[in-house]
């Protein structure tokens, strides 16, 4: 399998970071059936929540405002309300087993149905209606909670949903490609810091940020690389203070790819876009 690589050259005193993702999984019949039968599928982020209590039977419901980033099936407003069972109302908390929980800030794909006589949506079939994005896991980036199926990348998941819903969510292949040998393990998309070189005359360190995909033809259109550095010798806000220099070395020909650097938080974090 041919590998697509992107190589960045970064100059900074201290930089390190490595992300590994992997594991492939066959798509199950359950997943496909649910994707095909769901009236509405959206990708979005939970931006707020509130709870209500049914006065008739005492049940507590949580209403989550979902900011939609992509309509995968059906057309919905930019923000919708999703109703789930359970939650905390005044001094009472209901925990409902085997149902879907949402939390503020969570990024998800939801399979939805309308709530009768309401503008709200409800999640289909409990855990069979939620695909959750994961960060910080070494093996996968998304989980279908219905059958615990995992997806090694958002791209893989979105493209699969596109196939099942007769939509084209595919990412276009690159026009050119470059392969290189590296010790990076297999994965949908891997980052590595390599080739550190101290530059004593200028008190700098140069190193490469290598980005590799095992998927042939995959277009690299952008990514975040978050780096942590010591402030005792670099100071803070190294992007603002121009203590970091970042250059493309070997990149794809995708014109949308733009290299930017910015400070995050209190000056100990830098992000490359």
């Amino acid at each position: 399998m041919k590998k697509q690589t992107v190589k960045l050259l970064a100059l900074i005193l201290v930089l390190f970071s490595l992300t590994q993702v992997g594991v492939t999984q066959n798509f199950s019949t359950d997943f496909e059936d649910h994707i095909r039968s769901a009236p509405t599928i959206v990708e979005g982020k939970v931006v707020s929540q509130r709870t209500i209590r049914n006065e008739e039977n005492g049940n507590i419901f949580t209403l989550s405002e979902l900011e939609i980033s992509k309509n995968l099936k059906g057309n919905n407003e930019a923000t919708i309300t999703v109703e789930t069972r359970g939650g905390k109302f005044e001094d009472i908390t209901d925990i409902v087993s085997h149902t879907v929980n949402l939390s503020v800030g969570e990024e998800v794909i939801l399979l939805l149905n309308s709530v009768e006589n309401s503008s709200y949506f409800k999640i289909l079939n409990g855990k069979f209606g939620k695909i959750r994005y994961i960060s910080g896991n070494r093996k996968f980036h998304a989980i279908y909670e219905g059958n615990a199926e995992t997806f090694r990348s958002k791209r893989e998941l979105i493209e699969r949903i596109g196939i099942l819903t007769n939509n084209s969510f595919n990412i276009n292949p690159v026009a050119t490609e470059t392969a290189f040998n590296n010790i990076i393990e297999v994965g949908e998309l891997c980052f590595a810091i390599a080739n550190p070189e101290p530059l004593f005359q200028t008190s700098q360190v140069a190193f490469d940020i290598l980005i590799k995909s095992e998927t042939a033809g995959l277009l690299f259109s952008g990514s975040e690389v978050v780096l942590k550095y010591p402030t005792n010798n670099l100071g803070s806000n190294i992007a603002l203070n121009q203590n970091v220099e970042v250059n493309k070395e070997i990149v794809s020909e995708n014109p949308e790819y733009v290299l930017t650097v910015e400070d995050l938080g209190v000056g100990q974090i830098m992000r490359l876009n």
Partner: peptide, 12 residues
Amino acid sequence: NTLGLTTTRFST
């Protein structure tokens, strides 16, 4: 839509 579920309620 699931085999079983339990709503556990507690005072907070």
